[in-house]
Design a protein around this nucleic acid. Structure first.
Length: 205
DNA sequence: ATCGTGATTCCCT
DNA sequence: GGGAATCACGATA
């Protein structure tokens, strides 16, 4: 889909400016859908590009937020200012976030392959693997670095908000944003319930 | 639904 | 410092 200027290559466009990230985190999470995550590795390797289709916001006062209890060695990047890459490791997997205002961030959950993608970028761990994002990239500046985000081309995609996935606390807040119908959105049927409830009459399964 | 897996954090000493 | 709880996942079935 070409923009009004007819250009089709997202890497021709300048990275999103710092001001993009210096906004309320929910807005950033929503506006990130349809933008392009670009990793131009050192050397002659071709850039890897995905179009983001799924994000989650982690906001202040949010018990699921890594920064909920303030700065720690792991989450220090979340306090470095808007527009940095916060990469953390969980289990055997790395996940990437974009920082917004101090102590808040957006988890990048899934994307649609555009260029140079060798494995499925579906789910936050797999997205990082496909993009070649490593734990050592934690703290990188997204405005002026090898890993950047580039503006959407054309009209904004349709956006749906849903409960967040894979967390226990505050999972039901509608802070997950996705492009409905995209085959690249990660599927995880339902968030875990914190306490088992007896099946209600009329509820499914 | 469950399991592998190891880092991180917390709540004590 | 140390032991235990926790975990923004992914692969399995």
């Amino acid at each position: 889909m070409a923009g009004p200027d007819g250009r089709t290559d997202p890497t021709d466009r300048s990275p999103l400016p710092r001001s993009f990230y210096d906004r309320p985190t929910r807005e950033v999470a929503r506006d990130l859908l349809g933008t392009y995550l670009v990793h131009a590795p050192e050397g002659a390797h071709p850039p890897r590009v995905v179009r983001l289709v799924e994000t989650e916001a982690y906001v202040a006062g949010d018990p699921a937020n890594h920064a909920y209890r303030g700065p720690t060695p792991r989450n220090r990047t979340m306090f470095r200012g808007p527009g940095h890459l916060y990469v953390y490791r969980i289990h055997q997997v790395v996940c990437a976030n974009v920082t917004t205002r101090p102590g808040e961030a957006v988890l990048l959950r899934a994307g649609e392959p555009v260029q140079g993608i060798g494995s499925s970028p579906q789910g936050p761990g797999r997205l990082c693997r496909a993009m070649g994002i490593l734990h050592v990239h934690d703290g990188m500046d997204l405005v002026d670095g090898r890993i950047t985000l580039r503006p959407r081309i054309g009209a904004p995609p349709p956006i749906q908000s849903t409960p967040r996935v894979g967390i226990r606390r505050a999972a039901r807040r509608p802070l997950r944003f996705l492009v409905p119908g995209s085959p690249w959105v990660s599927r995880r049927p339902r968030p875990r319930r914190s306490s088992p409830l007896p099946p209600q009459p009329g509820s499914r399964s």
